[in-house]
Every structure is written in C-alpha cells, then in structure tokens.
C-alpha cells in the first residue's frame, strides 16, 4: 500500500486567524451595548457603515494586489479595524467621516504595507489620527450621556440615521444643544479656564469614577478584556504595563498637585484607556513581540497617553501614543530578544 507523505507535526490545534478576530469582536459586545445605552444607536450605524466600507475596500485592495479574496475577507480583521475606529468616533458623526477613515485605514495603513500581518501601524488608530487631524471639529461633537437632564435632545432611530447620512440635525435641534464635550475634553477646558479640579469635576458630565456613562462603558471594556485574556487571545503584558504606567504617572502628578491633575481612577475610567489597553495596543501585528518587549511597549503607550492627555493639544492621547510606540517596535524588538535555551544569561 502507498500513502501520501507530509511533514511533521502531523497534528495541529484547531485555531485560525478568523477565530481570533471573532472572539475579539464578541468581547467588544458589552462595550458596544453600553455605548448604545448611554449614547444612543448612532454607534450601531457607524459600525454598519464602517464594516461595509472595510469589507469593500479590503476586497478592492485584495483584488488589486491579486490575492485570494475569500480567505482574507473571512478572517474578520477588517471588521475589527472598522469596529475599533467606529468606537472612537462621535455617534452622530457624518457618514463620510467613518467611511473615509475606515477606507484610509484599510487601504493605506494596512494594504500598502502588505496587508494582514505586515502593517507596522495599527490601522484603526491611523484612520482615527487622520480624521482627528483633518476634521477636529466633527470629532469633538460628542453627545452627552443619558442620565443627564437633557433627555429632550435624545434622538430617535430615524433622526439618528438622518443626522448621520445628511450631516444635519433634525430642525428642532441645534448642534450646541445636542453635543457635549467628553469628560477629558471638559476637564481640559475647565482647567484651562483656571478652575480647580474639584470645581471642574462638579460638572454634570462627570460621574462617580470618571466620566458619566464612560465609567460604565470602560468597565464593560475591562470585562471584555478579561475574557480575551482568559481565552488566551491576548496576554497580560501590554494591558498591565500600559495601565500601570498610566496609574503611576497619574498618581505621581496627583500627589504633586491634586488641585491641578486628575487622579489615577479618573484616568483609567475615562477616554480610551481600557479600550486601548485591551483591544488596541494588543494588536499583535503592530506591537512588540517578546514578553519583555511588550512590557516596554505597553509602558511606553501608558506614559505617552498620560503626557498627551495632560499637556498635549488633543483630548485623548491613546491613538497617538499607540502610533508613536508602533514606530519604536523595531527598536524594542531588536533589544529584547529573549535568551535562548542553553545560552548564557
């Protein structure tokens, strides 16, 4: 009898890039759900627009690059990029914002560098950074979270769709009435106006821990992140290093002057700290790759996030911190090659 031969190992675990990406998407469900609870269905529209754009541009890029389309569309990585980017955009942002941002992320940040597994920068963060630099006004038009006494400005599903697709609000409302700064943004503005921390945090946009609503969304993100860790999709190094760095920086400055700097709990539960730590910085393709390298990489993102938030010109620093550390990955990888078995320490 004759048999076909094959190289060892003859058994492999059943795992796939598609499974990894699917689990990432499932782990984002709590975050998205609470986001909808606090800010309305706008996010779902953004996700739908973003995902459609991502799949279309991915297919286009694959076709232009003469790569097989089906396996790469099925791997879900484009959808993860789209969802992460949509989570960073204001729920009522006009449609062309999410579409152009996602298209830019997939085409330029991902495929121009060689596609899946070859992008040196996190595509979602590249997309966000481009939008933030190009359209700062639209990106600051956040909604107030529900629970503040402005329920009359709550938009219906139809109105939400109309606003996103046409770019203008229903006639009964004005942008000034509908929007509210994010907690980080509010804090920055208030502090600039010379208020103390206590006065600033008395504003209704702040909650018990961080921003109202945001604190719950971030806790949901933390839960999702723990699920990712438990399922071995991510490892602890990057999130722990990044969050520790934020806590250390925030604690130090808080101790220096509690009146002028927000405390560590506020920093953890506001903005994209947790989303960044568990879902963005952990993108393995653009992150450092050894355990030690990931600790350095995560800590770098944490420090830069704090620095940009506190002294920089933008409300949140996660995106730029991630991109800056993406830039340093080759250097980190070069100096953190682990000791190999049998070699001297």
């Amino acid at each position: 009898m004759t048999f076909p031969t094959a190289p060892a190992p003859h058994v492999v675990a059943h795992d796939s890039v598609g499974r990894v990406m699917r689990i990432v998407l499932y782990a984002l469900v709590p975050t998205v759900a609470l986001h909808v609870v606090f800010f309305g269905v706008g996010l779902l529209v953004q996700i739908a627009l973003g995902a459609a754009t991502a799949l279309l541009t991915e297919a286009l890029a694959l076709r232009l690059r003469q790569k097989p389309i089906e396996p790469f569309l099925k791997d879900g990585s484009a959808i993860v990029t789209a969802v992460l980017l949509a989570l960073c955009l204001p729920p009522l942002a006009p449609w062309w914002l999410v579409v152009s941002g996602t298209a830019f992320a997939i085409l330029l940040a991902k495929h121009l560098y060689g596609g899946l597994g070859r992008n040196p920068f996190n595509p979602a963060m590249v997309g966000y950074a481009v939008l933030l630099v190009s359209f700062p006004v639209q990106l600051l038009q956040w909604l107030p979270p529900s629970g503040m006494d402005i329920e009359q400005t709550r938009l219906s599903i139809g109105e939400t769709l109309q606003t996103i697709l046409t770019g203008s609000l229903p006639s009964r409302l004005t942008w000034d009435a509908v929007t509210s700064p994010t907690p980080l943004d509010a804090l920055r503005t208030h502090l600039k106006m010379g208020m103390t921390m206590a006065e600033a945090q008395a504003a209704p946009v702040f909650g018990a821990l961080g921003g109202r609503g945001w604190e719950w969304i971030n806790l949901a993100t933390l839960a999702g992140g723990i699920v990712l860790y438990a399922l071995h999709i991510i490892r602890w190094h990057i999130p722990v290093a990044m969050l520790s760095a934020i806590v250390v920086c925030a604690s130090l400055m808080y101790m220096v002057d509690p009146g002028a700097y927000a405390g560590p709990i506020f920093h953890l539960t506001s903005g994209a700290s947790l989303l960044g730590a568990f879902f963005i910085a952990t993108d393995p393709t653009s992150a450092a790759t050894s355990d030690r390298g990931r600790l350095i990489y995560g800590a770098g993102i944490g420090v830069l996030t704090y620095v940009i938030r506190t002294w920089g010109g933008y409300p949140d620093g996660v995106a730029f911190a991630v991109l800056l550390m993406n830039l340093s990955v080759p250097l980190i990888d070069r100096y953190t090659i682990p000791r190999v078995y049998g070699h001297a320490r």
Binding site: D15, V20, G117, H232, P284, T285, T289, R339, Y341
Partner: peptide, 16 residues
C-alpha cells in the same frame, strides 16, 4: 495565512 505575530508560538517554544 500570513503571520499576525500573535506570539502563541513563542509561548509554546521550549527553547525560548
């Protein structure tokens, strides 16, 4: 598929 640098392999490698 292309390598996504997930690092599962380096966790499993007995030669580090």
């Amino acid at each position: 598929m292309p390598c996504i640098r997930c690092g599962n392999c380096s966790q499993a490698c007995p030669a580090f």
